[in-house]
Design a binder for these strands. Structure first.
Lengths: 100, 100
DNA sequence: ACGATATATAGTAATATACAAATAGTCAAA
DNA sequence: TTTGACTATTTGTATATTACTATATATCGT
């Protein structure tokens, strides 16, 4: 039986990943660190939204960032993110097959 | 680039897993199918809550169920659930180590 | 120092979600 | 057919999330 606190913590991280914009931001980060502006453009959201969602990911240690001048370079901090994105890609392919 | 619809769908499933009660219900189901009453007792929630959360998991095809008389026997429908729970267990162990 | 750029934070309104109490439906046994 | 057990749904309320606008902060180039 998994401890309640562990479960609560895990749930927070997982819930944090369960958002289309945040998944898109993480997808962008798969190819390496990026600035907020770059991520914002990639995800097609406002600067504010990008910053907020990145903040949420940061709060759960899913991403990390460094500052260089005015820019903030974000990168993936939890390697399991890649596994999840790959999982989603596989599902996408399977979905296409079943439609065909 | 993952398609927007795929991302939205994936986000819904992931968000659905990001809930302590639902994770506990899934943990209970790892050892085989169970009725709502059994799950409710295991998770320590009311009948209403158990039924509602199971409904949410069902809506995303995370669990499946069959009826036998008045009872509903639920079971895990998506094998990736087990992987996630194992992942959480590993994190729990790692967490204990760092505390020690 | 000034203006332009980059990022973060407040405040707010709309929406979504969680939980519980009560209700309703279904089945089995008496 | 009535009773009791099991499950699902509805409804109300509290809370959380999201995105938007506006504002604040920090840094760079000139």
């Amino acid at each position: 039986m998994i401890r309640p606190e562990t479960l609560t913590q895990a749930a927070e991280v997982i819930k944090c990943l369960g958002h289309p914009v945040r998944l898109r931001l993480l997808e962008a980060l798969e190819s390496g660190e990026k600035t907020v502006s770059e991520l914002q453009a990639y995800a097609g959201v406002s600067q504010t939204t990008a910053s907020q969602q990145l903040g949420a990911l940061r709060a759960r240690d899913v991403v990390d960032f460094r500052r260089d001048g005015t820019r903030a370079y974000y990168r993936i901090a939890d390697s399991r993110v890649t596994a999840i994105l790959n999982c989603i890609r596989v599902c996408e392919l399977e979905g296409e097959q079943s439609v065909a």
